[in-house]
């Protein structure tokens, strides 16, 4: 079971208090984009075994969205950070590097 800390309200709760919202840091391609871009935006997901970045919502609490960095295999949570960020904070990336040197996820490493 995942234990997540909501960066909006500070509650540390277990996963049934939250709801997963899919992969994080996806760039949207909407009207005006070509078919390949739209296809990759809609369907191409990382779905890794290991380091992953996700969006979560504290739906049984403050109701806010946030980001979480975790390991899909060990369920280790590296950290959570606000939804209003375009990339994982350095502190969390350093923590992942310490555990998984050379990790890569989309354009982040």
């Amino acid at each position: 079971m995942l234990i997540l800390t909501c960066p909006s309200c500070g509650v540390t709760g277990e996963e049934t208090e939250f709801h997963a919202g899919g992969e994080a840091h996806i760039k949207r391609f909407g009207p005006g984009s070509d078919d390949d871009q739209f296809h990759s935006y809609l369907f191409a997901k990382e779905n890794p075994k290991g380091v992953h970045f996700e969006r979560w919502r504290h739906n049984n609490g403050c109701g806010k969205w946030f980001h979480a960095a975790r390991d899909t295999m060990t369920l280790e949570v590296f950290g959570t950070y606000p939804a209003q960020t375009l990339e994982p904070p350095k502190q969390i990336r350093d923590k992942i590097t310490a555990k998984h040197p050379g990790w890569k996820w989309r354009e982040f490493s």
Binding site: C9, V11, G13, T16, E17, N59, N60, G61, C62
Partner: peptide, 10 residues
């Protein structure tokens, strides 16, 4: 003050 889940309801 804690907002949470009580069995199946918020």
């Amino acid at each position: 003050f804690r907002r949470t889940r009580m069995a199946q309801i918020p």
